[in-house]
Design a protein around this nucleic acid. Structure first.
Length: 378
RNA sequence: GCGUCGGUGGCAGAGUGGUCAAAUGCACGUGGCUGUAAACCACGCGACUCCGGUCUUCGCAGGUUCGAAUCCUGCCCGACGCA
């Protein structure tokens, strides 16, 4: 059972208000999806993640395959039961790890490039630690060096064993440093793999295809047409999104215009609070980002007045909550001073409190986004 | 009182005649982080600087030497041992 219902279309933008229905309940869209890579939103228990307002989570195939292995998860009763998360789950295919453990690691870059780089990845180049072939990718475990092969067939099989409600096609997330020729080949590969994923897919889980093409407009359009014409139940938009919010919105909007309107779109790996309106107004329905938890563990707190580093000494004497406008339990209970102390003392509780708050803040921002669409503000 | 070992930058701790403003770790500071390789990474961390350098540092005071954190003498302090 998988359904996407659009409740309202904005007249001002491509934004839409909707509901995704899965065997584990509904997701009101647009929605922020927290990242639970290895079956946990780091530092938080599943019930806490739910309390913080999360409607669904996205876990990772590559990481869960490495540890504990999909068989262990299946024996535990599937991913939901294993991690005691009763709401909808997604699993990412491992396609992002082709980049993050490959060229991303080699060049020390993330998928969003802040400025133009001298480096370019040419057609035929391979990353240092992994090898990309026609049928998939040979990885070396980043944990112990064990070789493992992950391709469309393998990824789908693993995701079916894990049992999330929404699964993703295995793609190559290309580096933002890839040149046009590299991108051409990469895109063909991703499209071929998309087809292989559809053929390999046997369960009722919703399968999302992934649009790539980097910052090349014609490739994005081509990818949207090709992937959009395949019998996927939803679509992920992956890879790089350009240097600024406007180019993000432009690219997403262009892609969304070419996708079937009645199917949900998930923007992969983007979503700082600033990005929310851009993603929504470009027609994005769900989007995931590591930011709330990833930054929280480093002391960065997101608030209605922007972000700041709670570890800074000056907060040791600040008795205010992290965000005076925030309604989360952390802000109702603890002071900046206390959390600052915990962070400076490397107490895990500090990371946990910051993670919870950030997660709540992101979810509240998503709720605000929905309200704004409802009120015709976006 | 005698003997032994030792006193190095915020802390711990290398160095034991030039390549030492002094390794390394921690702490501290700044910056970065957008489908988690990430409680991580980069840079800075004596003072001044026209960024080439200049000046003051290795318990204190003298001395040896072209040159001392490094060798010698005295003093001060600490740990341990013996009285």
């Amino acid at each position: 059972m998988f359904e996407f219902k659009i409740l309202k279309r904005s007249k001002k933008s491509r934004a839409r208000l909707g509901v995704i229905t899965t065997p584990h309940g509904e997701i009101e869209t647009p929605s922020f999806i927290p990242v639970a890579t290895r079956g946990t939103v780091r530092t938080l228990e599943s019930f806490e993640v739910e309390d913080a307002g999360a409607q669904a989570l996205i876990c990772n195939t590559y990481h869960l395959h490495l540890a504990p292995g999909e068989k262990v998860v299946k024996r535990a009763g599937g991913l939901h039961e294993f991690m005691q998360w009763r709401r909808p789950l997604m699993t990412d295919s491992g396609g992002f790890q082709v980049f993050s453990l490959g060229f991303g690691r080699d060049h020390g870059v993330g998928k969003i490039l802040r400025e133009e780089s001298e480096k370019h990845i040419r057609e035929g180049t391979q990353p240092t630690n992994i090898k990309i072939t026609a049928d998939g990718v040979r990885f070396r475990s980043h944990i112990d060096g064990t070789e493992l092969f992950l391709g469309p067939k393998e990824s789908i099989r693993i995701q079916e064993t894990l049992g999330a409600d929404i699964i993703f096609a295995f793609d190559e997330c290309p580096s933002p440093l890839a040149d046009e020729k590299y991108m051409r080949r990469s895109l063909d590969l991703t499209h071929r793999w998309a087809d292989m994923c559809i053929k390999a897919h046997k369960t009722k889980q919703a399968l999302y295809g992934i649009i790539q093409g980097g910052s090349f407009k014609q490739f994005r359009a081509e990818s949207a047409k090709i992937i959009g014409a395949m019998p996927f139940q939803g679509f992920g938009i992956g890879g790089e999104f350009g240097y600024d919010k406007r180019s993000l919105r432009k690219m997403l909007g262009d892609v969304h215009d070419l996708l079937p309107e009645d199917k949900p779109r998930h923007v992969l790996g983007v979503g700082h609070p600033d990005d929310f309106p851009y993603i929504a107004s470009a027609g994005g329905d769900t989007f995931d980002c590591i930011a709330p938890t990833h930054y929280a563990r480093r002391g960065v707190v997101f608030t209605s007045k922007g972000r700041f580093d709670i570890r800074n000494r000056r907060y040791l004497t600040d008795q205010k909550p992290l965000d005076s406008r925030c309604l989360c339990d952390i802000c109702a209970t603890y002071s900046r001073a206390y959390i600052c102390h915990l962070m400076r003392a490397h107490e895990m509780t500090g990371m946990k409190l910051a993670s919870y708050h950030n997660l709540h803040f992101f979810n509240a921002e998503a709720q605000r986004l929905r309200t704004r669409i409802k009120n015709n503000e976006i």
